[in-house]
Simulated scan of single mutants.
Amino acid sequence: MPVAPPRPRPLPLNALRAFEAAARLGGFAAAAEELGVSPGAVSAQIKQLEDVLGAPLFERGVRGVNLTALAVDVLPDLTGAFDRLATVSHGLRTGAKPQVVHVAALPSVAQLWLSPRLPGLRAAASEIEISVTAMEQPPDLKRAPFDLCLFFGESPGEALAADTITPVCAPALADRLHRPEDLRHLPCLIDTTWHADWSHWMATALPGQTFVPRGPEFSLYALAVEETVNGAGVLMGHEALIAPFLARGQLVAPFATRVTLPRALRLWAPRPLPPGSAAQRVADWLRRQS
């Protein structure tokens, strides 16, 4: 009776993915954020891979981790393999559901810019299904399972709207704001994503003067906008996002000074869009709305 030779134990795919992400991004925490798991899970998967290999991939120290020579040697090939796998996976997803478009967007953009436009998009292309994922940072372009991305930045992609900022408030508070100096006497709402915006605007409105905004902080810009509408204080408004509130009179801009930042609201695709595809049609429609 023939005896089958023992087969080498296959390396666990999830552990390989965790190792590649941690090695490429420079740490377990960054890999965990990209993969949507905890740093402990990444550490455990890498330890599992090291146990199977019988060799370390990271040198662990009090200041973090460093790649071993073995890890440095295999990382480029492994990264290329996962990049290609991501491309194939996206092709499978697109081929299986060609009328579904996956959009990644900054939370404030998803809530305040994209969401009001979705009804019009559905009316214009009812056969297309739009899936929106809110993310604080743009996804890895080679790994992104998304068709389109909407974020503020200086690159990549096409600028849909300039990022022009100016303080805004509810109409009831506007009577108390005649000069920029008056902001010292009112709560100034602070968005943690754009915490430097007050400094950017004040450098133009009050050059040479020190101004430290004092007021509640918000991790969601859309929530800060709602609180500003409710009269909680003055918010540094991004005109691309708050234009409907200004048009309806829910918010007013009490000062003439406006500052346009180097970044802009940008639209891009992680990979080329086939002509006539659902993603291409959505991108064209969004461009017309800017």
Rank of each mutant, 00 (worst) to 15 (best):
P56C: 15
L57K: 04
F58H: 04
E59L: 10
V62L: 08
V62F: 05
G64P: 00
G64L: 00
V65C: 03
L67Y: 07
T68H: 13
T68C: 09
A69M: 13
A69F: 15
L70D: 07
A71W: 01
A71R: 00
A71E: 02
V72W: 13
V72H: 15
V72F: 14
V74G: 02
P76K: 00
P76W: 09
D77N: 12
D77I: 11
L78Q: 07
A81F: 07
F82K: 07
D83P: 06
R84F: 11
R84H: 14
T87F: 12
V88N: 10
S89V: 06
H90A: 05
T94M: 08
T94S: 04
G95A: 10
Q99L: 11
V100R: 13
V100W: 08
V101N: 03
V103P: 05
A104V: 07
A104K: 01
A104L: 04
A104G: 06
A105S: 09
P107N: 13
P107A: 13
P107Y: 04
V109F: 05
Q111P: 13
L112K: 09
L112Y: 04
W113A: 01
L114N: 00
L114P: 01
L114V: 01
S115M: 10
P116G: 01
G120I: 09
G120L: 15
L121H: 07
L121K: 12
R122P: 12
R122E: 11
R122C: 14
A123E: 14
A123I: 13
A124G: 08
A124P: 10
A125C: 06
A125N: 04
E127F: 07
I128C: 08
I130F: 08
V132T: 01
E136I: 06
P138F: 05
P139N: 05
D140P: 02
L141P: 02
K142T: 11
K142C: 07
R143G: 02
A144Q: 00
D147E: 11
D147K: 01
L148V: 08
L148Y: 11
L148I: 09
C149Y: 00
L150N: 00
L150S: 02
F151L: 04
F152K: 04
G153L: 08
G153S: 07
P156D: 01
A159S: 11
A161N: 05
A161R: 14
A162S: 09
A162Y: 05
